[in-house]
Amino acid sequence: MTTDLDALLTALYVHLDDHVLPSRERPPRRGPAPLLTDAELVCVAIAQVLLRYDSERHWIRAAHSRIGHLFPRLPGQSEYNRHLRALAPVLFEAALWLVRATPTWWERLRLMDGTPLRCGASRVTVNRSGLGEIAGYGRDASHHAFYWGAKLMLVTTADGAVAAFSLAHPKELDERKQALHLAHVQTLAPGPCPIVCDKGFAGAGVETAMAALGHVLIRPRRDDEPKPAVKVFPGWLRQRIEAVIWTLKNQLGLERHSARSTEGLWARVCQRICALNAAIWHNWLIGAPVKRSLIAYDH
């Protein structure tokens, strides 16, 4: 392992323990006390994602040799899985703190897009899976295919840090309704700002509702709309959030989440997004030229 990952985990643990999670008290429960604190478990979970261990079972086997010098007390595989599912609120809180600690949080620009999160490929999985509360049949317009899973909505800063995110049933909430719900329940930016999105968010209702919240949607023209006199849509910004989604799904393994319950799926989504925000936050700290680069932390 390189010293870059060591530096990231050390700095992250210090900030989480001192500023983000110092007042968080574990609820009383029976049984032995957990081996790791919340801050330590967040760091271990982020190290798993950055080192590209999709399976918790394989990660616990390798964790002693990869990060054992930083965290000598590591739980077993079943205890780690159980605590990781219960850690979702902490990972969510840490991810939002990390994006607010980056300079681009204060920029008046956001990128927004939704992406399907597949959870099964067979009828047996649909009938027997514990993901029925959040998963359903939807259509992936980008690949012209139907899928069974959930819809992940992301709002990011210009450098790719995730500022707000949510999971929704693809039939109960379409992209526009999910975006409005996300804007009402989470803070997208410190103040009103333009949001670059795709033509799937077109509609007078969603644009009026977003404008009432102070956010202006910037999107490409639909085929049934008149052509503007000047082409002003920044297509290169749309490609940036597509690259962020690719990073989450491929480099950080969100496409291979292997979740079997709603709690497990939400915990793995929070884990991947927290790892991405942690890498961007640390790249800002050390002055790395490419803020979304994970090369220094994946080996």
Rank of each mutant, 00 (worst) to 15 (best):
H282Y: 11
L188I: 10
R219C: 01
L213G: 10
F92Q: 12
P234F: 12
D223F: 05
L91A: 01
G235E: 05
R260D: 15
I241K: 00
H143Q: 08
H282Q: 02
P220Y: 12
D223G: 15
P228A: 13
A243L: 02
C274Q: 05
E79N: 00
A209G: 10
G136E: 15
Q178E: 12
I286Q: 10
A267L: 08
V232E: 14
H184L: 07
I60F: 09
R139M: 03
V20P: 09
D17A: 07
I46V: 02
G235M: 00
R240M: 08
A278E: 03
A243S: 06
G205A: 04
K291H: 03
D298K: 09
C43Q: 08
L111Q: 15
E107T: 03
A211L: 12
I134L: 15
L21R: 06
V124K: 12
K177T: 14
N277L: 01
L182P: 15
D6W: 09
A296N: 03
E56K: 01
H169E: 13
F233I: 04
T247P: 12
A95N: 06
A202W: 10
E175G: 06
K199M: 07
A279D: 03
A168D: 11
F201H: 02
E225R: 05
L173Q: 11
A204N: 06
P89G: 07
F71N: 01
Q77Y: 14
V196K: 05
C43L: 06
A101C: 10
Q48Y: 15
M1T: 03
N81G: 10
R108Q: 13
D4A: 11
I195Y: 11
L5V: 01
T37G: 05
R128K: 06
S142P: 11
